[in-house]
């Protein structure tokens, strides 16, 4: 009885430390995801590329699709 109560207590401590770790990882994930989203933004890339003299294309890229006739 006493032993099992103690082992239950131990599990409670473990759960609380694990849930803290989850929080920490989640927080780090959101932090980094936010940073990534900032870096991925077109407006950010635009300002960064301006330094190198590269601007946004006025025309879209052209995809050339060769229709295969070996059917």
């Amino acid at each position: 009885m006493i032993a099992s109560a103690h082992s239950a207590d131990k599990k409670v401590f473990e759960i609380s430390s694990l849930s803290n770790e989850v929080k920490e990882l989640r927080s780090a994930f959101v932090d980094n995801r936010g940073k990534l989203m900032g870096l991925k933004k077109e407006s950010y890339i635009e300002t960064k590329m301006k330094e190198k003299g590269i601007g946004i294309s006025l025309n879209p890229p052209i995809k050339i699709i060769v229709k295969s006739s070996n059917k």
């Binding site: 006025l58 025309n59 879209p60 052209i62 995809k63 050339i64 060769v66 229709k67 006739s69």
Partner: peptide, 18 residues
Amino acid sequence: AQKIYTDTPLIDEIQPVE
């Protein structure tokens, strides 16, 4: 409008040269 225009690639389909 321009952003959406330049984001959509124009598609050019050609017959294979054989």
